[in-house]
Design a protein around this nucleic acid. Structure first.
Lengths: 336, 336
DNA sequence: ATCTTATTTGCAACCGGTTGCAAAGCACAT
DNA sequence: ATGTGCTTTGCAACCGGTTGCAAATAAGAT
């Protein structure tokens, strides 16, 4: 069907190795030979087969991109950045969707069977079972947007969620709010829990302030809205930190339908800086993760891990600062 | 490193073919042999290498999943469905992001070099260059959510955008609106233009109605909002069809900030039924594409194309009906 | 022209599997 | 014991490449 190395060699009247060498950079071929081979290859439309090559080179340039987060629009952006960045380096993402009930061991074995060079896990809610299973196949791997503390001997890139939670509390306190609420995602999400820990730590240093907390059922608009509707049966806090934008936007909708003015009656801050947080009818003050840097750094980390031998590689955590994006749902800094 | 066929054969004291056969379904192996081999394989943690196997079987089970649509949240759902559905059939999506300036020929060659079994193009805005380049590598391919008319000799799955445009016009007319506006995405998007053609066709049958049209700069919230703000400098139409939800939601925000009540002052209808179209503070009446069926059908089509020889395969178009999702941005059907 | 050294080339083995074919093994009938 | 037909097994070639090594060629030094 498609032309092979052998076809090219025959047509050019040279050995197969010669052809192979013209298509391998750094190999020793004379100019004359190279021209002869390239001519034959062009005429036949020959392209080397990456998979056959991988058998001897032990490099497929395939990277498993594993996620279970296919509902939060934030992750479309994450996938966009990951795919472009990997492609720039000649790496190819094999996308693996582990939402639904997938067996961790099967998934890990599948990745090994496809000889992926490395694995990127992009999710903050990946189960422990996957972490263990992936580790067993001994592939270079990096966890992105994942929990900092859970696997100390593995590459992690993201923000420090505890620090981000603490920062959120400091911002709200800095605006002079006295009755402050934390509204998280589901309690099984490590991202939410880490943010909660940081948030609580700061609040506990201010016993003069009133601190309440609650958790939405899921990382979704509806869950955020429902939870806020529940909270609004009682007099609300003066300001809330919603541990994710999509939840905060749900909460905002609940506030509006209760006739509450934001930020005049109640303040609200999110986290993630979704594109729609900037929409004119939402205009959510939020904390931004530097996604581009996080992704770039993850890809760079996996790319260098591919070069090193397994023993040489020392896993690292790369934590980035999150920063406030001021919009219209918090009152301005307290002056005086 | 990892155990190979040869390792297992030696440990079990049998030939390599015997091992190969135990891991190939439908091959002839006695029970005794199978047990012996499986024991050895277990002890060594052996798993067959898919890529080596593909060399002789000529099947990688890799499917190129090509898209340039990484900003519309609608596509996160599309990717979710595609990956799960492919995985269910043991197929693996190699995700290719062709947004940005990618050379069509390079992309097509890359897919050939990775020996993908087939290609799914999931986008309504793919350039002609890609269609041509993909065709040249002679891989089974299906275009999903793509233009119906552009390539008659290629598999296409999606809705009939012209019909959907016509349907939209009929709905608005049926609600008794007399001054009707079409608001499209960018004029280079085939989806928008096809919808516009259908919409116009119906409107032209009603010369007694006033019909205006305009196009937003992009498929984005901001573009929709900007375009609507521009329109609102003059007295607006009674109702608009925004050819995509994200544009419509932008337009909705513009209407609100002009103090217009929807649907009392002006009606609005979108297309796609994004999750957020159902959010309480948006509540957009819209036209839904049956995404799940479209994706399932695409995967089924590519799966059967893989079985057939190239000559036997006859390309087909599978068009699904789109249907109205009634929410709160259109007045109820006109009675009397 | 001759010797030394560096560069280019081809041979053949290998990467990790599959598969057509013929030999071997088996069950059963004669 | 012999023959028949069916299943199981191993041999060896192949899939499409790469690569260590030695032979062949080219380049440079004398």
């Amino acid at each position: 069907m498609a032309a092979t190395l052998k076809d090219v060699a025959e047509r050019a009247g040279v050995s197969r190795s010669a052809v192979s060498r013209t298509f391998t950079d750094g190999a020793s071929v004379s100019d004359k030979m190279r021209r002869k081979v390239e001519k034959a290859a062009d005429e036949l439309g020959y392209q080397p087969n990456f998979l056959a090559r991988s058998l001897t080179t032990r490099r497929t340039k395939l990277i498993g991109l594993v996620s279970d987060n296919f509902t939060n629009p934030f992750f479309l952006h994450v996938f966009d950045l990951f795919t472009s960045e990997l492609q720039k380096r000649g790496l190819r993402p094999l996308l693996v969707n582990i939402s639904g009930q997938h067996d961790p061991v099967d998934t890990a074995q599948m990745l090994r069977q496809y000889s992926v060079d490395g694995v990127i896990v992009a999710s903050s809610t990946v189960e422990k079972g996957f972490v263990d299973a992936f580790r067993k196949v001994r592939l270079p791997e990096v966890y992105t947007l994942s929990r900092h503390s859970c696997s100390p001997d593995v590459n992690i890139v993201g923000i420090d969620n505890e620090a981000a939670g603490a920062f959120a509390a400091e911002v709200l306190i800095g605006r002079g709010y006295k009755r402050i609420g934390f509204m998280g995602g589901p309690e099984i999400a490590t991202s939410t829990m880490d943010r909660f820990v940081g948030f609580s730590r700061v609040m506990s240093r201010h016993p003069e302030l009133e601190f309440t907390h609650s958790f939405a059922e899921a990382y979704s608009f509806d869950a955020g809205r429902d939870e806020m509707l529940r909270l609004l049966k009682d007099p609300p806090a003066e300001a809330y930190f919603g541990a994710d934008d999509v939840i905060s936007i749900g909460a905002l909708s609940a506030m509006h339908s209760h006739g509450l003015k934001v930020p005049d009656d109640v303040g609200l801050m999110g986290l993630n800086d979704l594109e729609m947080a900037g929409w004119a009818n939402i205009n959510l003050t939020t904390i931004r993760q530097p996604v581009r840097q996080i992704v770039d750094s993850s890809v760079e980390l996996i790319a260098t891990a591919l070069e090193e031998s397994e023993e040489d590689h020392v896993p690292q955590a790369r934590l980035f600062p999150a920063k406030l994006v001021e919009r219209g749902t918090l009152r301005p800094p307290h002056t005086g």
